[in-house]
Design a protein around this nucleic acid. Structure first.
Length: 1242
RNA sequence: GGGCGGAUAGCUCAGCGGCAGAGCGUCGCCCUUACAAGGCGAGGGUCACAGGUUCAAUCCCUGUUCCGCCCA
């Protein structure tokens, strides 16, 4: 079955997708068994309307459901996903009518009911098929053998059965009630089909004269034209103003009718308006209730097109809005219009036509809903049906508890005609109701008056009239609400009312997956009908997905021109064919992203409780992902030779670390993906698989596998091949539900034995605990850390991949050394190394770039390759990060409450972290020191704008002395006090020139004195430090002076000689590529006969480089414009102190000063030394910036302020950044072993 | 009027008490024989605002402001 043809270079979805779907269809994989030993899993597809084609929301529905179905099918379920379409009464009728008008200029009445319906069926045939086709493009594994339509014979039979049973049970009734009426669709609507909109309108105050009195009552109304249908005015029974008028009459203006003044406490709010309300029972829902309470006459003044009836006299025939103007004009003329005020009102509009709906009194069919709603509420309360996301449960309850009877009749032609019949012999007939328009859809002059006739409800047309024995009947012309048949969908599609095996197997369905917009329309009604007729809930779980919007979050609509057609996305489209918004985005036309990419995108963006903004950029990203998968597979297949994976246990092969690692990671990914699917976490599952495939399998495993694949060891080669195939097989199966096409295509080509002919019926992978290998994951950490560290060094120096470098790795840990030695084969190609020396900590190669991790240090001899400036920059950044993080952790640890109250493990972790960070920082500083630039010419010009960054203050508030100690005699290998100070002072050292003593000391230092410093030197140095505000340093120097100087020995020669030339070269590194390496390597190798630097005590070692690091850090910003300096300064905070001390000649801007003050968290001087409580510190930091910004008002001040504001969180930000710096690979690793991974990176 | 969501990097989105993440986009270097739809590296955040709870808040609570939805 294996197809070993090579894969094309890039993935071409279109061809693959068509071919694969045909294959599945042919094999009948989508078919579910009516009866089976397997557990059942069933979903009924929410039937799309046959109005037209699928939109992107349908694509989302299909994607999610197909993921569920394919996943369950692969997991051993007898999975049914049942397709179908909905006749969509009003919508479809309107669309066809529109087309009829356009193409033939005819109305449906021109054709007549039967002919028109014929046309609709033709339409249905065309678009129903198209919808099926679109689902196939999407890869939907629907059981087409069970495809249904809401108006097919079986569904229609179910509809009739339900209608009749409900009628027999007294739950279906016919009544003349006030309903919502759409004057342009000319049909009744249910409450749900009316959309409420807040609109700006007016409220008019109209005077009604009280009969036999000179008083008038003023009513306030938003619909003055309805006054022609008023049958009362109402006041509040307790309203003293009008109490005496109750029972009297007013003379209705314009018509002259006399209507009663009634008292109604429910309708009237005496505090609102005038306290008098006109009552128009036939045209307002509140008034209707009032009318019922008071048995008022109900006078309809509007016909089905919302035109004034003949009862309205001069207004007859006017449209309702026209009539409003006329009525107002007349009232005005008669002086009865008191005033008009602007008023906000909620207007109900028809969901379909957007016409303002009109409450209308008419005979309709209703379902008594309360007896049906109660069991549905209980079922959800009892958890028999669960909502996902859970938040919808309350929405459901709220609606169900406030539900009204459901008006199910529609005055349309397209739909299920109501199974009610009227005897044409004895039914009352319509009189000469000539004001009815000729084209009235359901009423013919002289015909049966359906509003008064007695219906006979029956499954079949009756034979004879039980009343008169007549044999001629006319069926109720109305049809049922579309949602009536939809409500039966979960069981009507399974064969109900027959007791089919399908019903037995698949009802209740497992999941109802649909958009939350139809929770009431559909979900609630299915619940009610399912419970009533099947005695059980229709589904165990309701998963409600979000709405798909465009990239800007706008609803997609044709008028907005932002509609995205899923087929365009899948197949591509010419720009002319695209909606305007997309045309902009794809002026060259839309590329074919493929169904897999679309599905993966939708799955990745599906988030519970949030609309989906479909991002075309992410779509492109996932298309790239498909290509990545394709090419990874291509790589594997290209390297298979004659190999065939027999499926034998991998454990029995001799696995490499990389093998064990990827296999372990795969098991974890498997577990995670499965767990996510169980909880409907589609995005999470997709992300897990994406990360695994790309960031682990491709970025690491494939790269590591190349060693053995390209090597000579045949057994090793085959093991790698086996692991590649095993992994691909697994990951393809894991991804199959998301991306069915590409996974099948590749899977078919894997050289292995397949238990099934298709991936879609292969088993969904389970995690193999035997392959979970913590040790391998832990072992990989240093390898990855080392490679990443080396890559960073290369990257910062912009070394091209072709340029190989040497690396010296030192680790105090024998095990790490051993590992690295063993895995040098990984290190060398991935980090671009020509040689790698692994050993214990020893002499550091001079002038080498360095990478510091917890357990190891890596040196890359510069040899003219590395950009020294870049490397220094990098080290400085690293140091700053370590420092900043240390600061924040230390701040926490200084808080006694934290230590006392936080869980011990948290405290312990932080303590360890501080130690780690300090070590790291020390090492980094050491390295920085090693590659310090050639000292610049002495220059004493003080500069106001430059301030030394006394970073240590921030870093180690609790141990200030440690970070500021000067180099000691133990310090070897490049400690150069003079240079250090020069570095610190930089080109613009700002030591007060006035002090000759200091000058002398500095001059001496600048000469690069290698001899030990005398006590005087120390003293002078102390003075210098003091003058810079570096109290710690000064104190230390004074101490040294007291002790009597260093008595330092001559510096180590090796270091010296090695360092010198390198320094010179360092200036122009790139140009001298070839020259250095050989000579450079020399001093490195003989690590054993070193100058005993290994014995260096840590603290002193730490101290020296700290200095220069600080100096370096300061140099750059110092040169910058004042604003920048201020910013920098505030970031570091301490320098302010230095400048300020010296009379603070304005170096830092005011804002900076403020800012500096604002960071008291750092116990900057050990003298003032009490660390402010963390909280206070935070507050201060928070508070200050605003003030500073305000005061300064300048850009500089502002940015400085901002920087300080960032201090609180900001201190940690950069450090965090670093943690995140690596590629996703690292992250994924981090996920599994967060602390280990994170540590490894440092 | 009542209710429910949402606000985190330039964009689209995860995370939801203990070191802020992804994809895309940006910048730098590279055509390195699986993939330029690519590789490596870097930069990028007052987690809407204001209070509160807590040793600790992007996360919990209260309020505010915007945005969206539902119901009346």
């Amino acid at each position: 079955m294996s197809d070993t043809t090579e894969l094309s270079k890039a993935y071409e979805p279109t061809e693959v997708e068509a071919r694969r779907y045909a294959f599945w269809l042919e094999k009948g994989y989508f078919r579910a068994e009516a009866t089976s030993d397997k557990p059942a899993f069933s979903i009924v597809l929410p039937p799309p309307n046959v109005t037209g084609s699928l939109h992107i929301g349908h694509a989302l529905t299909a994607t999610i459901q197909d993921i569920l179905t394919r996943w369950k099918r692969m997991s051993g379920f007898n999975a049914l996903w049942l397709p179908g379409t909905d006749h969509a009464g009003i919508a479809t009728q309107m669309v066809v009518e529109k087309e009829l008008k356009k193409s033939e200029g005819k109305s449906r009445h021109d054709l007549g009911r039967d002919t028109f319906l014929q046309r609709v069926w033709e339409w249905k045939g065309k678009y129903g098929a198209r919808i099926g086709e679109q689902h196939r493009y999407l890869g939907a594994s629907l059981d087409w053998s069970r495809e249904r339509f809401t108006m097919d014979e079986q569904s229609s039979a179910a509809v009739r059965e339900v209608f009749v049973r409900l009628y027999e049970e007294g739950l279906m009734y016919r009544a003349q009630k006030l309903i919502n009426w759409c004057p342009s669709c000319r049909t009744a609507l249910s409450d749900l089909e009316v959309e409420h909109e807040e609109k700006n309108g007016s409220i008019w105050h109209i005077r009604y004269p009280v009969k036999d009195s000179d008083r008038t009552l003023t009513v306030a109304t938003t619909r003055p034209e309805t006054m022609l249908g008023d049958t009362a005015v109402a006041v509040h029974p307790e309203d003293e103003r009008y109490k005496d008028l109750i029972g009297k009459h007013v003379v209705l203006p314009l018509s002259g009718r006399e209507i009663p003044i009634i008292a109604d406490g429910e309708l009237v709010d005496p505090k609102f308006g005038t306290g008098v309300v006109k009552v128009t029972p036939a045209h307002d829902f509140n008034d209707y209730q009032t009318g019922l309470r008071h048995k008022l006459p109900m006078m309809s003044i509007l016909d089905e097109a919302a035109r004034m009836t003949k009862d309205t006299g001069k207004y007859a025939g006017m449209d309702r809005f026209e009539a409003r103007k006329a009525v107002l004009a007349d009232l005005q003329e008669q002086g009865l219009l008191e005033k008009e005020e602007p008023h906000k009102l909620s207007v109900g509009t028809c969901q379909r036509s957007a016409t303002v709906v009109e409450p209308r009194l008419s005979p309709q069919w209703f379902i008594k809903i309360e007896p049906l709603a109660r069991p549905a509420i209980e079922a959800v309360e009892q958890g028999r049906t669960k909502f996902v996301p859970e938040a919808w449960t309350n929405t459901f309850f709220h609606w169900m508890r406030n539900i009204h009877d459901w008006c199910v009749s529609r005055q349309l032609w397209w739909g299920h005609q109501i199974p009610a019949y009227y005897c044409t012999s004895c039914s009352p007939r319509l009189g000469d109701d000539t004001d009815l328009p000729l084209d009235a859809p359901t009423v013919k002059v002289g015909g049966v008056d359906f509003s008064r006739a007695e219906p006979i409800v029956a499954r079949q047309a009756p034979e004879s009239c039980p009343k008169c024995g007549g044999a001629s009947f006319i069926q109720d012309p109305d049809v049922l609400d579309t949602w009536f048949s939809s409500a039966l969908w979960p069981f009507s599609t399974l064969g109900w009312p027959n007791a089919t095996p399908e019903l037995k197997t698949f009802y209740p369905t497992s999941v109802m997956e649909t958009g939350h917009d139809i929770i009431f329309f559909w979900v609630a009604r299915m619940m009610m009908m399912g419970l009533h007729f099947m005695g059980d809930v229709p589904f165990r779980t309701v998963y409600l997905h979000a709405m798909v919007r465009d990239e800007k979050g706008e609803k997609m609509s044709k008028t907005k021109g932002n509609v995205i057609d899923p087929l365009d996305v899948i197949l591509g489209a010419k720009s002319e064919a695209l909606a305007p918004a997309l045309k902009n985005k794809f002026p060259q036309g839309m590329p074919a992203f493929g169904a897999d990419a679309l599905r993966f995108t939708l799955a990745s963006l599906t988030q519970q409780g949030r609309d989906i903004k479909l991002s075309m950029d992410r779509l492109a990203g996932y298309k790239a992902f498909c290509n990545k998968l394709w090419n990874a597979s291509r790589f594997a297949l290209m390297n298979m030779g004659e190999f065939q994976y027999d499926g034998g246990p991998l454990k029995e092969r001799s696995l490499t670390l990389a093998d064990r690692w990827i296999l372990s990671r795969l098991q974890r990914a498997t577990t995670e993906a499965r767990a996510s699917l169980e909880t409907y976490g589609f995005a999470e599952a997709a992300s897990t698989l994406y990360q695994f495939l790309w960031a682990e399998f491709c970025d690491w495993y494939i790269e590591l596998a190349k060693g053995s694949l390209y090597g000579e060891d045949a057994a090793a080669k085959d093991t790698t091949r086996a692991v590649l195939i095993y992994s691909l097989d697994r990951v393809l199966r894991l991804m199959h539900p998301f991306m069915p096409f590409i996974t099948e295509e590749i899977w078919q080509k894997l050289p292995m034995s397949r238990p099934t002919d298709s991936i879609m019926i292969a088993a969904y992978p389970e995690s193999d605990a035997a392959l979970v290998d913590e040790a391998a994951e832990a072992e990989m950490a240093p390898v990855i850390a080392a490679i990443e560290g080396l890559r960073t060094i290369r990257g910062e120096s912009n070394l091209p991949p072709a340029t190989k470098v040497k690396a010296v790795v030192q680790s105090p840990d024998a095990r790490t050394r051993d590992l690295l030695e063993r895995w040098r084969g990984y290190l060398m190609p991935l980090a671009g190394l020509s040689e790698v020396h692994v050993g214990p900590p020893g002499p550091k190669p001079p002038q080498a770039a360095a990478f510091v991790a917890t357990n190891l240090e890596i040196f890359v001899p510069l040899a003219g390759l590395i950009d020294l400036d870049a490397e220094r920059d990098r080290l400085r950044k690293e140091i700053a990060r370590a420092e900043q993080e240390a600061t924040s952790v230390l701040r926490k640890l200084e808080n006694p409450n934290f230590v006392a109250k936080a869980p011990p493990d948290v405290v312990e972790k932080d303590r360890a972290r501080v130690v780690e960070l300090k070590e790291r920082k020390a090492k980094l500083e050491d390295h920085l020191q090693r590659i310090a630039p050639e000292p610049p010419m002495p220059e004493n010009t003080p500069s106001e704008s430059s301030t030394p960054a006394v970073v240590e203050d921030l870093a180690s508030p609790s141990e200030p002395a440690q970070v500021k100690v000067a180099p000691t005699k133990e310090e070897k290998g490049g400690v150069d006090l003079g240079q250090e100070l020069k570095g610190e002072l930089g080109d613009e050292g700002r030591v007060p020139e006035a002090d000759p003593q200091v000058q002398a000391a500095l001059a001496k230092l600048r000469e690069g004195t290698k001899e030990g410093l005398s006590p005087t030197d120390h003293h002078d140095l102390g003075v210098a430090y003091m003058s810079m505000g570096l109290v710690d340093d000064a104190m230390r120097e004074f101490d040294k002076a007291k002790e009597g100087g260093d008595g330092r020995e001559a510096p180590a020669k090796a270091t010296e000689s090695a360092e010198r030339p390198a320094k010179v070269k360092a200036k122009k590194p790139a140009t001298k590529k070839a020259e250095a390496p050989v000579s450079e390597a020399a001093p490195v190798a003989p690590a054993s006969e070193d100058e005993a630097p290994a014995a260096k005590p840590a603290p002193s070692k730490k101290a020296a480089p700290a200095k220069s690091a600080k100096a370096e850090a300061t140099a750059a910003p110092a040169k910058a414009a004042p604003a920048k300096a201020a910013k920098k300064a505030s970031a570091k905070a301490a320098p302010v102190k230095a400048a300020a001390k010296k009379g603070g000649k304005a170096a830092p801007v005011k804002a900076a000063k403020k800012a500096g003050k604002a960071a008291p968290a750092k116990p900057s001087t050990k003298k003032g030394g009490k660390a402010a409580p963390a909280k206070a510190a935070k507050k201060a930091a928070k508070a200050a910036p605003a003030k500073a910004a305000k005061k300064g008002g300048k850009a500089g001040a502002k940015s400085a302020a901002k920087k300080v504001a960032a201090k609180k969180g900001g201190a940690k930000a950069p450090a965090a950044k670093k943690a995140s710096a690596g590629k996703a690979a690292a992250k994924k690793v981090t996920r599994a072993k967060p602390s280990a991974r994170a540590k490894a990176r440092r």
